[in-house]
Amino acid sequence: MSENSALKAKLGIDVFKPGKVAHIKIKPGREKDARLQAAILLCPAGLYRANEKGEVTLTTDGCLECGTCLVACGIEVLDWNYPEGGTGVQYRYG
């Protein structure tokens, strides 16, 4: 299993309740901001990826709502919110 699919499998064990909108967004025009490199390194769910053009993309499915990317990149780069009440990750052990 590749590293990424192993991580996907691990996230597959968790319970997620889908929300209507993405709760974290890279602010328009910030896709190449150097601070996003820290999010690529640190996101425990591996949700930040750089494409060939050097732009960073984010999918919020599998987000553990830890806030690491917010602290690492700041509010100039990210529009960061918790998902709406009753959606997102639901830990059963914690």
């Binding site: 590293e3 996230l11 064990i13 996101c43 591996g46 052990y93 914690g94």
Partner: peptide, 28 residues
Amino acid sequence: EAPALFDAFKQRREIADLIKGGTTVEYA
């Protein structure tokens, strides 16, 4: 990357021996 650091830690002999046969039920 952080997930890889976690896996490397988990795969160290010092740790692997302790959790052998266990089942991961949550990732947080």
